[in-house]
Amino acid sequence: MDKKKLEAKDFITIGIFTAILWVVQLVIMYLGYLSPFVVAGYAVLIPIVTGIPMILYYARIEKFGMLTITAVIVAVLLFIFGMGLTGAPICIAAGLFADLIAKSGNYKSKTKTIISYGVFCLWVSASYLPLVITADSYKQSLLEAGYDAAFTDTLFTIVTPKTYPLIILCCFVCGVIGAFVGKAVARKNFEKAGII
């Protein structure tokens, strides 16, 4: 009974895990309310924390298309929340590539899953993109809004077109770390409890 195509129950699982992914990342975003510096830390925090539900998600479906659909939905949500059209294609591409990598390992290979999740995490970098592209006008508007020049400078030395590749790398590396964390948590909890 190993069907390789997504069925109704898989679409339900996709919906549920995408909801969790979004809620978890939204909670981390809210932490950004507390300190502007957390904003720069999204690239670290989001991949690591969402690693836990996502590794479980990988184990629950193991069929091609799961990550792509998740990425499409996340892209739509990002768009609605004002992260822009520019971010959406990156997000979808990340999902598609992650899906392809995981598929090449039949969703069973541990290494492929970890790399795949690292790639998937590149969607996080998409949310920085508007910040990078419109850096000047964005900085201007922050200054006009009364932000300290020192603060905006710090923010924009961390996030600039030049450091953007670094942010992407950071997302990937933290994604890999997140995958290891997720694997460890899964072994400690979900495997031990016998549900995967």
Binding site: I12, G15, I16, A19, V23
Partner: peptide, 17 residues
């Protein structure tokens, strides 16, 4: 339809979460 199901489940699932 698959994507529509996924999104519908999400909408239903937020309050459950």
């Amino acid at each position: 339809q698959g994507i529509a199901i996924s999104i519908a489940v999400m909408m239903r699932f937020f309050p459950t979460l």
